[in-house]
């Protein structure tokens, strides 16, 4: 019987620790499928960051380096500069990338480091239990914005793709979502393109993935998907911001 669906080789055969309805698992799988399809597992180094995915080094079959909070792009820079033939990706959440690690991501992008960042935006801090993230939406309730995020008190959410798109070193930037099958397929294509951009030595590439956090949003998995569609996508429009037609 022909195999129509199997675990990607780049993903270890272990169960993940993520909450029910969390989309990290899907995103991990997409990365692993891309690594398989590009046949780069043997030369890929993943950089885990701090947050719910701090230990995703346990899930990938390629070499992995765990980085301090926000520093994954700097660590990735070191890894890539040491062995430029390697493929390096960082996996970072919104707190990690857009708050504590703002300097590192901006400058890695500005330098045009030949690394790929998968930026998972779920508009909240997951691991530390639901605090306001730099991407938390206006009026969104979190444990540190119990009355809702207010412009007056907390300022505006950061649109990372738009922000980084102004940098010449960042050559491929796309925002995707994993809320339905069609978007999941698009997300995979974007991640694949981002890796190909790196393989072609073009510069820095980043894919922002809108993701859910049912636990900290206080919703069940289905409601969480709906919430993402109704609230996040309008604020964080999907699509390519840079490098759509880049030859790879």
């Amino acid at each position: 019987m022909p195999t129509v669906f199997k675990r990607p080789h780049a993903l270890k055969e272990v169960s993940m620790h993520y909450c029910p309805g969390c989309t990290h698992g899907i995103i991990h799988r997409l990365i692993a499928e891309v690594i398989d399809e590009l046949d780069i597992e043997g030369k890929t180094i993943g950089i885990s960051s701090v947050g719910c995915t701090y230990n995703n080094y346990e899930y990938f079959n390629c070499d992995m380096v765990q980085a301090a909070h926000g520093r994954a792009p700097a660590v990735g820079t070191g890894v890539k500069r040491a062995n430029p033939d390697n493929v390096v990706f960082t996996y970072q959440g919104d707190g990690d990338l857009a708050a504590i690690g703002t300097a590192e991501i901006v400058h890695a992008a500005a330098r045009g480091e030949k690394i790929t960042t998968v930026f998972v935006n779920n508009a909240i801090y997951g691991m530390t239990s639901g605090q306001m993230a730099p991407t938390t939406l206006i009026n969104q309730v979190t444990t540190t914005t119990p009355y809702g995020r207010s412009v007056e008190k907390h300022g505006f959410p950061i649109r990372v793709c738009e922000l980084l798109s102004s940098l010449e070193g960042a050559v491929y930037i796309e925002r995707v979502s994993v809320n339905d099958i069609k978007n999941i397929k698009n997300a995979k294509q974007a991640i694949k393109k981002a890796f190909q951009v790196q393989l072609a030595n073009k510069g820095f590439s980043l894919v922002e993935v809108l993701s859910t956090c049912p636990t900290n949003w206080g919703l069940n998995p289905n409601e969480a998907i709906k919430w993402l569609e109704n609230n996040m996508i309008p604020h964080y429009p999907l699509g390519n911001f840079k490098g759509k037609d880049l030859e790879v």
């Binding site: 380096v65 660590v75 040491a82 062995n83 300097a103």
Partner: peptide, 26 residues
């Protein structure tokens, strides 16, 4: 070799962390 003027001391030591992780003298 590689010389990188980092954006901060924090970034510089983390680049060393990365390079050392990759097995080179940094």
């Amino acid at each position: 070799g590689t010389f990188v003027q980092a954006e901060s001391e924090v970034a510089a030591i983390n680049m060393v962390y990365g390079a050392a992780s990759a097995g080179v003298r940094a």
